[in-house]
Design a protein around this nucleic acid. Structure first.
Lengths: 198, 198
DNA sequence: TTGCTTAGATACGCGGTTGTAGCTTACCTT
DNA sequence: AAGGTAAGCTACAACCGCGTATCTAAGCAA
């Protein structure tokens, strides 16, 4: 007879998952600097006392959530469509950046008072096991199959696509359409590996 | 005989300059979200009451400071050294990003709760009068003088240099050396305008 | 010198977050 | 069915930023 609806009490795994989701949403919305136990608890609909039983700090909750986050999906290069695979890998990146984990990562990496431990946890856990960035995986595959000279696949070249996607999302505030991704591939990446249209 | 050292009392212009400097430093350090009258006042060594006499909000102080900030220096293309001018324009960008105003701008643009009015003020005031981004100015100049086909100077191509500099500063946390800038020019920008070494 | 303007100092109540404590009660195990 | 574990709830003092009010005294101009 408490009138609070039939909301059952969460425990263990289930509760923790909710808290992890909450802290990722929270950090994406307010940033690392404004992370607060109060805010996390509010979003997860759990009292702060429950949080303090497990963690002593909002950042600890965040690190724990990152630790349990799924690693980023890796693009799987097809048979013989370099251009299409590049566009698809950038699409994968854009989609990921819109996910809770992606937006959380963006908030963390751009935090003014970025703490090394947090960035470190990011690279180790979220990007764990990945061979490289989105386009790098594709480019390495096609370089190994002789579609272009491997010596052209420098760190700079491997970053071109991601860098341009990031800058575009910054400048326009919205996500690039497929047309934009194609432009990036055609006008920046392909020329850099000697496969420009000109 | 107040014992507070001989610190003279600041007034008008002088005081405001100190406050502008303070808010830029503050936002670069804690971010827009954590900007506070308290923090600004502390850094400028002035009581909050003085701030409230002129502004009603930390963001207003920030916007005012940006309004009075010096516009970004524009690269001046030389006679006949496209590659050198590109590297110099990126160097100009890196140097600016390390200045108080530059770091403030970075903090503002990456703020999770980025407010349109603030970004708008940025582009209108800080970048006011500039024809374009750093490398774009250089590229347009050389395109107009026939060093490469103007049709290749697309929005994507004009962004390549800046995008890569930004991503590098993100990833490594430190500023790119001249070697890195040269790599960006040689491996990404020049190929995109059909002047690759290959 | 007189007097206006305004920076500087202090104080206040308000509201939000903190970290802790205690109690109740749902959930799970035995 | 009984008991232990832990989630949920309430409360607390402490701190900090907010926005305002009031007083003082420094800087400047007539």
């Amino acid at each position: 007879m408490d009138g609070q609806g039939g909301r059952t009490r969460r425990r263990g795994e289930e509760l923790i998952k909710a808290i992890h989701a909450a802290v990722l949403e929270e950090v994406a919305e307010v940033g690392v600097g404004r992370l607060t136990m109060e805010g996390i608890g509010r979003r997860a609909a759990t009292p702060r006392t429950t949080l303090y039983r497990r963690w002593s700090d909002p950042v600890e909750v965040l690190l724990d959530a990152l630790y349990h986050a799924h690693p980023v999906e890796e693009p799987t290069p097809g048979a013989d469509d370099l251009r299409g695979d590049l566009i698809r890998s950038l699409r994968l990146m854009v989609d990921w950046m819109l996910s809770p984990a992606g937006r959380a990562v963006a908030a963390i990496l751009t935090d003014p008072q970025r703490r090394p431990e947090v960035s470190k946890a990011l690279y180790e856990k979220v990007f764990a096991g990945r061979g490289g960035t989105f386009t790098r995986t594709v480019l390495r595959h096609y370089a190994e199959h002789g579609h272009f000279p491997a010596r052209l696949l420098t760190p700079v070249v491997a970053d071109i696509g991601e860098a341009l996607v990031i800058k575009r999302m910054f400048d326009t505030g919205r996500l690039p359409a497929d047309d934009d991704l194609a432009d990036i591939v055609d006008q920046a990446i392909l020329p850099a590996i000697g496969l420009g249209p000109g």
